[in-house]
């Protein structure tokens, strides 16, 4: 057995064991923390499977944003969680366990029966790549070959923000957490946020030729937004500024598609000589909007001001 196969097997067993622990940990806090670990381990799995784009996104989303959202919700649901949270008893159900085991067996058999010589769409992508305006195949698929999907996906993100905001009854996106941040957090924010913005811009630019692009950059910008908001930095964007940031990606796609249609082409049928520039324009708008969406999803969850201040520093 080669070292590579041994590593893959070890990682596979670890992933399953960690997922098991997430679902069977007695306390919810432990479950959330182990789930964040699972996100980091998944990033290694993506790297092993030659998917560096996904590894970058997973490291920021799976280990970062999802973890922050879960921890924040856990604290809102069980204030003072960690040691004295109520332990939810879980009643084992034999029927469910047997059904899940049978399904797993059937799925594994089906997986092993998949033909091994199907080429997929790689050859088509290789053929069309020179005309796509970029040299990175995943970016070419996202922003050129399947741009319709990506455009509508930005629409899904907009709807998610609207849905989260429609749950709240409070200040929306323009409030700040009361109390302000301590000196260490402020220092960290001042150090980290400019670096995160720089790395995000670099990843955005890199997307045309290497692993990177709007999604990775957007998720990083979103994390920077969450940090800024948690540290109580002002000014918070006004309502119209939020709307502009959130809609920019969808609108840039739509605007460029509209101009192309007015010029007698199909929606998103870029002229090959302009494709690189158009893709960079759309990606920039998309990165800003994805970042704003991620930050808005976090901020929008704080639907009452009372929930924000746990230290009781400011209740007025």
């Amino acid at each position: 057995m080669s070292a590579a196969v041994f590593f893959d097997l070890l990682l596979a067993v670890t992933l399953v064991a960690v997922a098991w622990r997430v679902l069977h940990a007695p306390g919810t806090f432990e479950a959330v923390v182990v789930f964040i670990t699972l996100g980091l381990l998944m990033a290694i799995a993506w790297a092993r499977l030659s998917a560096p784009d996904i590894a970058l996104a997973e490291a920021a989303v799976g280990a970062g944003l999802t973890g922050v959202l879960l921890l924040d919700t856990l604290r809102a649901l069980h204030p003072g969680a960690g040691d004295k949270e109520p332990v939810v008893r879980h009643h084992p159900s034999w029927a469910a366990s047997v059904a899940a085991a049978v399904l797993a067996g059937v799925l594994v058999l089906a997986l092993l029966g998949i033909p091994r010589d199907a080429p997929g769409l790689t050859e088509r992508v290789v053929e069309e790549l020179p005309r796509s305006g970029v040299s990175q195949p995943v970016t070419a698929v996202l922003l050129n070959f399947r741009s319709y999907d990506t455009w509508l996906e930005l629409g899904v993100l907009l709807i998610a923000v609207v849905a989260v905001l429609s749950l709240r009854a409070g200040t929306g996106l323009t409030g700040v957490p009361p109390g302000g941040a301590g000196a260490p957090l402020l220092w960290l924010v001042r150090l980290l946020v400019p670096m995160v913005v720089l790395v995000g811009g670099y990843l955005l630019w890199l997307g045309k030729s290497a692993a990177g692009g709007a999604f990775q950059a957007g998720v990083l910008l979103g994390a920077a937004g969450v940090l800024l908001w948690l540290a109580g930095q002002r000014p918070v964007p006004r309502e119209w500024q939020w709307r502009l940031l959130l809609a920019l990606g969808f609108a840039a796609f739509l605007g460029i598609g509209g101009v192309l249609m007015a010029g007698g082409r199909l929606l998103f049928e870029y002229p090959p000589e302009l494709a690189g520039t158009l893709i960079l324009l759309i990606e920039t708008g998309a990165a800003v909007s994805i970042g704003a969406t991620m930050a808005a999803l976090f901020i929008g969850l704080h639907f009452r001001t009372g929930e924000i201040s746990t230290g009781g520093a400011d209740d007025t």
């Binding site: 030659s50 997929g120 769409l121 995943v138």
Partner: peptide, 8 residues
């Protein structure tokens, strides 16, 4: 490279 369509 691996099939980029599932990656996207």
């Amino acid at each position: 490279f691996a099939d980029p369509v599932p990656h996207a």
